[in-house]
Amino acid sequence: MPRFQSLVPLLRPLAAPRAVACRQHFRLYTASSEHPSTPQEAQRAADLAAAESLTEGDSAQPPQQKPVLPSKHPRADNKPRNSKKPKTSSQALKLSLPPPKYTVSRSVNKNLPIYTDYKRGGNLHLTTVRKITGDVSALRDELRVFLNKKNEDVKINSVTQHVVVKGHHTSEIAEFLKARGM
């Protein structure tokens, strides 16, 4: 018997919890394992079951229509998104501007130096134009007008002489620079 007495404190944490200690957790459950003893409890249980059935995903109610995201709206020109045709010279962007006061040099692989970046955990999207010589502020102003952006959305990094645009606009900027003869 003395051996069993010495093991009781060790086995006590493994025992089932007392009902008094768990009562606060049980009150959150709507279904109980025992049948209601009074008509009021039966009515309350029926009301709770009816409320749960309305909120369940497999209810007889038709599902509410989900809102349409702006990117999923039907296109006005009724063309599928993946039917991009290569642009010919007549379809290319026509700009009637004076010659630019800047030049954007190509990279080693003959690509335009336009890069995208994610900051703030992926919430801030940036597009950077590098390798600019000449009047950087002229390029910034032209891109701001072309992309229809606010003044604070198109900035110049004064240390690196890069133009930084909020949002991912790689294809639009490349189209613009090609139209300007870069």
Score class of each variant (00 low, 15 high):
residue 143 L to D: 00
residue 182 M to F: 08
residue 85 K to M: 10
residue 66 K to D: 11
residue 105 S to G: 07
residue 167 G to W: 01
residue 181 G to R: 04
residue 123 N to Y: 07
residue 151 N to P: 03
residue 124 L to H: 12
residue 2 P to N: 15
residue 83 S to W: 09
residue 72 K to Y: 03
residue 109 N to L: 13
residue 24 Q to A: 14
residue 66 K to E: 15
residue 44 R to S: 09
residue 8 V to Q: 11
residue 125 H to Y: 10
residue 105 S to R: 14
residue 115 Y to Q: 09
residue 41 E to R: 06
residue 122 G to K: 02
residue 40 Q to N: 07
residue 104 V to P: 04
residue 92 A to Y: 01
residue 10 L to Q: 13
residue 31 A to C: 12
residue 154 V to Q: 03
residue 123 N to T: 11
residue 148 N to V: 03
residue 9 P to I: 01
residue 116 T to P: 00
residue 47 D to V: 05
residue 91 Q to E: 15
residue 159 V to D: 15
residue 14 L to D: 07
residue 101 K to W: 01
residue 118 Y to R: 12
residue 56 E to T: 14
residue 129 V to D: 06
residue 92 A to L: 13
residue 121 G to Q: 07
residue 71 S to F: 07
residue 52 E to W: 09
residue 76 A to P: 10
residue 137 S to H: 10
residue 156 I to T: 07
residue 158 S to I: 07
residue 82 N to K: 08
residue 24 Q to R: 14
residue 10 L to D: 13
residue 13 P to R: 10
residue 46 A to E: 08
residue 139 L to S: 00
residue 63 P to V: 01
residue 51 A to Y: 03
residue 90 S to F: 09
residue 132 I to S: 02
residue 144 R to V: 02
residue 165 V to L: 05
residue 20 V to R: 14
residue 84 K to G: 04
residue 62 P to A: 06
residue 54 L to W: 12
residue 6 S to Q: 15
residue 146 F to D: 00
residue 63 P to D: 02
residue 114 I to H: 01
residue 131 K to M: 13
residue 36 P to C: 06
residue 19 A to M: 09
residue 31 A to K: 11
residue 151 N to G: 06
residue 93 L to K: 03
residue 146 F to L: 01
residue 28 L to S: 10
residue 7 L to W: 11
residue 105 S to E: 13
residue 63 P to I: 00
residue 41 E to L: 06
residue 86 P to A: 13
residue 175 E to S: 06
residue 78 N to W: 07
residue 178 K to M: 08
residue 156 I to Y: 02
residue 139 L to V: 02
residue 51 A to M: 09
residue 148 N to T: 05
residue 117 D to Y: 09
residue 23 R to K: 14
residue 121 G to C: 03
residue 141 D to R: 01
residue 43 Q to L: 13
residue 66 K to A: 15
residue 113 P to N: 01
residue 104 V to W: 01
residue 29 Y to I: 08
residue 145 V to P: 00
residue 74 P to T: 03
residue 107 S to W: 09
residue 88 T to M: 05
residue 16 A to E: 10
residue 112 L to E: 02
residue 151 N to E: 15
residue 82 N to D: 14
residue 112 L to N: 01
residue 90 S to Y: 12
residue 170 T to P: 04
residue 10 L to V: 11
residue 24 Q to E: 14
residue 123 N to Q: 14
residue 107 S to D: 12
residue 69 L to G: 02
residue 56 E to Q: 15
residue 49 A to N: 05
residue 3 R to E: 13
residue 83 S to F: 06
residue 130 R to V: 05
residue 130 R to Q: 12
residue 69 L to H: 08
residue 133 T to N: 12
residue 118 Y to I: 06
residue 71 S to C: 08
residue 97 L to G: 00
residue 122 G to R: 03
residue 12 R to D: 06
residue 11 L to P: 04
residue 127 T to D: 04
residue 137 S to R: 12
residue 100 P to R: 04
residue 150 K to W: 08
residue 35 H to R: 15
residue 72 K to P: 04
residue 162 H to M: 09
residue 145 V to M: 04
residue 101 K to C: 03
residue 50 A to C: 09
residue 45 A to V: 05
residue 63 P to A: 00
residue 52 E to K: 10
residue 31 A to Y: 09
residue 18 R to G: 08
residue 66 K to Y: 08
residue 109 N to G: 11
residue 38 T to H: 08
residue 152 E to H: 13
residue 56 E to F: 11
residue 99 P to F: 00
residue 169 H to L: 05
residue 142 E to W: 00
residue 62 P to N: 05
residue 81 R to C: 05
residue 46 A to W: 06
residue 132 I to F: 01
